[in-house]
């Protein structure tokens, strides 16, 4: 995952606010992988995730003036991505059966060099188990493990307390371990 320091981010935000679209392009490039993974896990559809992230970055650009000087860029961006993804999932859920989308998530077998303990079959199974987690649990797992965010950043991105992130993470991991993720109705 591409990384950036808070100092880098602050400077990029300052330039983007001043109208430097190149600086905003750097922000997109830096955070796109985490954003795409986050959106993919939350919405359950990689094609839709691309559109969601594109839309989220456009929204972020429009809202650039609202980010506080003491606020970290990444959780702020990821909150926007998560909100777009959740809204998209809700909308789609109303018109489609969720099961239709389960098979559309894919893992890339070619990037599995580090994964001696996770073969392709296990990876697919784990991915689909994550996809079947209740929405709130899946959002936390998406932030923590797929967007690489800390507990505090996840709390910020999802607008919940750190303790909530901790408990939801623990609950989600327990469900994954048990191999029996449960479905939960969307609000």
């Amino acid at each position: 995952m591409t990384s950036s320091t808070p100092a880098d981010d602050a400077e990029l935000v300052r330039r983007a606010r001043a109208g430097d679209t190149g600086a905003f392009g750097v922000i997109v490039r830096t955070h796109q992988a985490a954003a795409l993974r986050l959106a993919t896990i939350i919405c359950g559809d990689p094609t839709e995730a691309y559109d969601i992230v594109q839309e989220a970055f456009v929204s972020a650009h429009q809202a650039m003036q609202t980010i506080r000087d003491d606020e970290s860029l990444r959780p702020w961006l990821m909150r926007i991505v998560a909100n777009h993804a959740k809204n998209s999932r809700r909308s789609r859920w109303r018109r489609d059966a969720r099961a239709e989308h389960h098979a559309r998530l894919r893992v890339d077998d070619a990037i599995g060099a580090d994964s001696a303990a996770l073969d392709a079959v296990d990876a697919e199974a784990l991915l689909h188990a994550v996809e079947r987690l209740p929405d709130k649990d899946r959002s936390v797992i998406a932030c923590r493990f797929f967007a690489g965010m800390s507990e505090a950043e996840t709390a910020n991105a999802l607008g919940v307390a750190s303790g909530t992130v901790k408990s939801r993470t623990s609950r989600a991991l327990a469900r994954l371990r048990a191999g029996m993720p449960r479905e939960e109705a969307l609000p």
Partner: peptide, 19 residues
């Protein structure tokens, strides 16, 4: 560890097309 590994293997587009 498996989740982190899975995240790295998730097939998402990370070229400059999105930018």
């Amino acid at each position: 560890q498996h989740l982190v590994s899975l995240a790295q293997r998730l097939d998402v587009r990370t070229d400059d097309q999105l930018v």
